[in-house]
Design a protein around this nucleic acid. Structure first.
Lengths: 197, 197
DNA sequence: ATTTTTTATAAACATTTGTTTGCGTTTTTG
DNA sequence: CAAAAACGCAAACAAATGTTTATAAAAAAT
């Protein structure tokens, strides 16, 4: 009966996936059992635990319907407004969620920002674009970063020269900003644009 | 106390959205209450019921954590390769799925394509970008389209002059392509870029 | 100010559901 | 075939959680 188990595990996982897709919330242990043809909740329980141990899903202890699939998507919040004083990751600032494949934008601490202005036009970042930012306090020379200048977030390419920090706009008509120090909010790792109005 | 209610409803809905995005499964009534600052489960219960009645979410009776959001996302397939003979929307060509907010990219018949080449660089469309395309056979003057030229998909701005179709690259170093007729695959409605390797 | 309506609370109740335990059954192993 | 391991089951238990009811507090209306 060694093979049976693998087969059952697959069935259970598949059912959970379907159930979540259909209902928007996870199934209970008993619902899984009924559908897969297992009469004991204990058996289902061990299967689900096994799936968790193998890393196919997440499971919170003692909570009802608290399994979730390891999806290959990350949910990234769009930050409405960056306020200087408050932490970026405060719920109140979340305007929307975007769900993107994690292979591409993987990792934690991601957020999105709406770009205003055309200072990065030559890097292909236009006014109105939404940039995907990895939150970090530092960045390497030449990387595109989001920095806090005058209490608002600005996107520029970062350089360090002679102990100074240079925020370089990719736009011929604009000139570099030079600082002794600058607060970096994160590094730009992606971008999204909509041509709709 | 008339206004309070609307505000609380909004808070509850927002919290549920955040919770689901973070955890993959819905919150319990008590968790909602704790976060929104309502001490009675009964109050939360009425709010959730109200949200269901107003159509903001689905809710199953007597089940734990069985609320689900009315999904506002569209799943858009990334088309691996465009083959001249075969229909674009053949499953075999689907390379991945991207789930994006429908307010922004709403509608059916959307697909994504990977851009190769830099013919649209001045429109902010770079080599390696993924464009979001609405499938349609026609487009208006001045719109950016995906057209089939020599059995492969190309992205250009479309113009019609004197009965001819002009595919105009947004790149100084390249020149227009002029045809009597051209097969249009769709109109570009969005774009996604990843700065990762 | 008084009445009415709305909103919030606490407490109790009813179910669902996660988890554990012990025992039977099947499959594998030697 | 016998022993061991793996698997499944039922039943019971323990929590978490949805739901209802009666009551208090607050806000709005009169």
């Amino acid at each position: 009966m060694a093979r049976q188990k693998e087969e059952k595990l697959r069935q259970v996982l598949e059912y959970i996936q379907h159930y979540v897709a259909e209902n928007g919330y996870p199934p209970s242990v008993r619902e899984v059992g009924k559908s897969v043809g297992i009469k004991s909740t204990a058996t289902v329980y061990t299967y689900i635990s096994a799936l968790r141990d193998k890393g196919f899903l997440n499971k919170a202890d003692n909570k009802k319907r608290a399994v979730s699939l390891k999806s290959n998507a990350v949910n990234i919040p769009l930050i409405g407004t960056v306020t200087a004083g408050q932490p970026i990751f405060a719920y109140e600032n979340y305007e929307d969620y975007y769900s993107l494949p994690s292979e591409e934008f993987g990792g934690d601490d991601l957020f999105m920002l709406r770009v205003s202005g055309s200072s990065m036009i030559e890097a292909g970042i236009l006014n109105g674009d939404k940039i995907i930012v990895h939150r970090q306090e530092n960045a390497n020379d030449g990387e595109i970063v989001v920095a806090l200048v005058d209490d608002s977030a600005t996107v520029k390419r970062l350089f360090r020269r002679d102990g100074k920090v240079i925020l370089h706009p990719e736009n011929e008509t604009m000139s570099d900003m030079i600082f002794d120090d600058v607060k970096i909010l994160g590094k730009v790792v992606g971008l999204m644009r909509s041509f709709r109005t």
